[in-house]
Design a protein around this nucleic acid. Sequence first.
RNA 1: GGUCCCGUAGUGCAGUCUGGAGUGCACGCCGCCCUGUCAAGGCGGAGGUCGCGAGUUCAAAUCUCGUCGGGACCGCCA
Length: 587
Amino acid sequence: MRTHLCGELRPDQIDQTVTVAGWVNKRREHSQHLAFVDLRDHSGIVQCVVDNSVDVRSEYVVKITGTVTARPEGTTNDSLGTGQIEITDVTVEVLSAAEPPPFPLDDRADDVDEMVRLRHRYLDLRRERMQRNLRVRSQVNTAVRAAMIRQQFVEVETPMLMPATPEGAREFIVPSRQRPGSFYALPQSPQLYKQLLMVGGVDRYFQIARCLRDEDLRADRQYEFMQLDMEMSFVEVDDVLNAVEQTVLDAAELVTGERPDPVQRITWHDAMNTYGIDKPDLRFGMELVELTGVFASTDFKAFASAESIKGINAKGAAADWGRNKLDGLTDTAKSFGAKGMVWMKVGSDPESGDLSLDSPVAKFLSDVEQKALIDRTDAESGDLLLLIADDWLTTCEVLGELRNRLGRPPVSQGPYRYVWVVDFPLFVGVDDATGLPRPGHHPFCHPHPEDIGLLDDPEKMASDPMSVRAWAYDLVLNGWELGSGSIRIHDAELQQKVFAILGIDEVEAEARFGFFLNPFRYGAPPHGGFAYGIDRLAAILAGEENIREVIAFPKPQSGLDPMTAAPGEIDAEILRELGLRVLPQTD
RNA sequence: GGUCCCGUAGUGCAGUCUGGAGUGCACGCCGCCCUGUCAAGGCGGAGGUCGCGAGUUCAAAUCUCGUCGGGACCGCCA
């Protein structure tokens, strides 16, 4: 039907007769017998010189045959790839007429209400930005799949209909027609199946898998999303990290043309201690500064009894933060669990150049303490210091939040800084209700061998369960968690020990996890794996702040599809066949 | 479940704080003119339940309450 794409025509094709097809991006009328039609397809735009008697308007679908001609002197357009040429002596065939689109299909649509775009997503997709994003996403999939295949991974599809499991994320439920009253669940991840594939001797499995979670939506979360899901047998942590690393570096290289640096590694403890968060954004500094020792014998009551005192230095930020904004920041700190926040603006004496601290609490701090504080934080005139005193974890977490708020660039703004966060704690604190440790990841995570001895120390487990590290790791990119994984427990005795600590006895373990763990009795290889979000990776590589921008048909925060109106009611007959009855709404 | 922000022609906005006739702007759309434009230009025109519902008031886009829709975040996402 066509000989060329619109955007690929160049002076090389001058004098050739070509046929292009696409949408009318713009018509500029000049007289009865002259008009310019910008014809657009996914590759770009080319100008066609037409007789104005032909009735083509915005978004008409047309086929144009004509001669590629050099543009007359002074009429070239450098902002267009095809700007040196135009198509003349054309015949125009209207393939489809079109109503005017409800919003402009160019950059101006970036400012249009997202609901309007989603309601007419098929029009939004015609835009250059969306065309580019879908192609970035396709490149990510391509690079990831190629990297896995290259490393001898086997692509296996796992079921979408699986048993409901009460653990973890809320699941989407599918009623069974053949067994009314029984239900499938859609997979929140292929976790169960991929470990059984290891028992099944597949050795190296991967899948670009659709996962579904019925949890509230966010900028980085949709009901359904794609993950690179992988699992390997006879491996240790490094093997998994290295295999995954190839996929994300390849993806970034294919999209951007540049291979990022090898992925850095940091332990969970160091990440918390230095950045105050388990998904640190390494693109900027403002690291947490240890100050507990500085105030070891302070008279300032808020600091005197604190287990941990740390601070951050927002360089040159003092002038940007007035009293009101600092009060707001203090409220933010409190909302993340701090008892309070100390701020100090660094000033200097115009005569001597000596630094001074302007703060409501400065008068409670000795000269020695103030000097040490300035010294430790590398403070200069104009800096803003924020200090938190609390238990270690709270101090870190609050400062990590403040650090991100004060210093973090947009997630999409380069460079790409991947980081592995390793040695996550096996347990995340103690459940208030039961007094038992709570699993950090899932209860099948392999404890760090150096810490397995701690599991037999009831006193340690009661007082400090977080000291047990796991062979669990996260992959982080520019402050976004891409995914996580672990080495799994394959040894029944160790599994039982972990269950015991979590307060799960044999009967309960059998009831909750039996279908999953019993196959391990037939010989499970040591194995581990990983999964990360393709949508998130594609969004960051496409320069987007929101995964909806790299998904063809995403849902807004409500989960209601503005284009198809899903979810909707269904026929009473279908409900009857499924043995379902809809109850009246209750409040 | 919670906190904060937003809702005015097809689209993007101003007007809302301080109530006074839908008072406007830009783009788009429709018609006419125009032979070198490229987010063309000129002239003319159409287009509005100010999200919806109550309340206060002589009078509500504007104030109050409720509700619906959207967004960011917290909870949640083992």
